[in-house]
């Protein structure tokens, strides 16, 4: 029992417990925060596998950006109280999905070879970030570029959705504001003029 084993069991226990409670919990904000806890602990797990780049990127991207936006939306939502009408339908669908997922996982785990050959051997005298960069821009450059292109399309689409002509009346035009002169706004009236 060395310290990493203890840490491993601690982290995995936290992951499992918070995953279960994330599903059970009623409050959506609590669920989102539990998801933060799960991601953070997964990052620790990756760090223990010496994947320091991936683990820090997981914290940076998912915890630091994606889940913040998630929390942002969830906090502003005014969710209605629990509906009891459709519970039987929900139960049917959840049973079907869980059975399908169980069978899939069973096939993956028991018909797949998880032998020692799959364990990554840490490369000597090299640094993790450097190796990942090298791999991304040589062997996997095509998939890397495709991912980048898809993300670019998504960004443009998100901007395009938000541009609508109807809202123009509410917008401030900073250019006009900057160009505004004192003489346009202020009028000094002296006593003599009155």
């Amino acid at each position: 029992m060395d310290i990493t084993t203890i840490l491993f069991y601690l982290v995995t226990t936290v992951i499992i417990l918070s995953s279960v409670s994330m599903i059970i919990v009623n409050n959506t904000v609590h669920a989102a925060l539990l998801l933060v806890l799960i991601f953070f602990n997964s990052a620790i797990l990756w760090l223990m596998l010496q994947a320091e780049f991936l683990s820090i990127i997981l914290v940076l991207v998912y915890v630091g950006a994606v889940l913040v936006l998630f929390l942002f939306v969830v906090m502003l939502l005014d969710l209605p109280k629990k509906q009891k009408a459709n519970q039987k339908l929900y139960l049917l669908f959840s049973i079907i999905t869980s059975v399908v997922m169980f069978i899939e996982l069973y096939i993956v785990i028991f018909y797949q070879d998880f032998s020692n050959s799959l364990i990554a051997i840490p490369l000597p005298e090299s640094n993790n970030t450097y190796e990942i960069g090298l791999m991304l821009f040589t062997d996997y450059v095509f998939s890397f570029e495709v991912t980048a292109f898809i993300l670019l399309v998504a960004i443009i689409a998100a901007i395009a959705i938000n541009i609508s002509d109807k809202q123009k009346a509410l917008r401030q035009d900073p250019g006009k504001q900057v160009l505004e002169n004192k003489s346009d706004r202020l009028k000094i009236i002296k006593d003599d003029d009155l």
Partner: peptide, 25 residues
């Protein structure tokens, strides 16, 4: 003296927002 020091700092400073959001909510 870790290799991904700058990323670590970037990741941690991005976590500071949680304190603010949780406090506000």
């Amino acid at each position: 003296n870790i290799n991904a020091g700058l990323l670590y700092i970037l990741a941690l400073t991005s976590l500071g927002i949680y304190g603010i959001i949780i406090a506000g909510w």
